[in-house]
Amino acid sequence: MALDRATVKKIALLARIKVPESELDSLAGELSSILTWVEQLNKIDTGNVQPMAGGGHLALPKRADAVTDGGAPEKVLANAPERVETYYAVPKVVE
């Protein structure tokens, strides 16, 4: 699949990564070559094959319903680029 500039722009927007206009073409070329290369998988018939979801071989482990964490705002706010009191602060959002 060859990706065009517009598609690259669209996925960059979805991924929230700013891509300079000047790099769109070369990036489209790189991504297209990767996609073309991975498309060799289409040669395999996977009709009845179940997808493998993860590397685990086991059952989902569960934990008991108990409060064992939290209660330390400083621990989660320590690295915040911008904070006000015990809030994280971000540019204003208009809903």
């Binding site: 934990r63 319903d65 108990a66 409060v67 064992t68 964490d69 939290g70 209660g71 705002p73 621990k75 989660v76 706010l77 009191e85 015990t86 809030y87 994280y88």
Partner: peptide, 28 residues
Amino acid sequence: SKSKLFSGAATDFGSEPNSQVSIVDAAM
């Protein structure tokens, strides 16, 4: 429930901001 779906932080309503947040909830 007492604690969150995927972390051990409490779920009480109306607590101090970010006082019921585990490092899992803050996606460290």
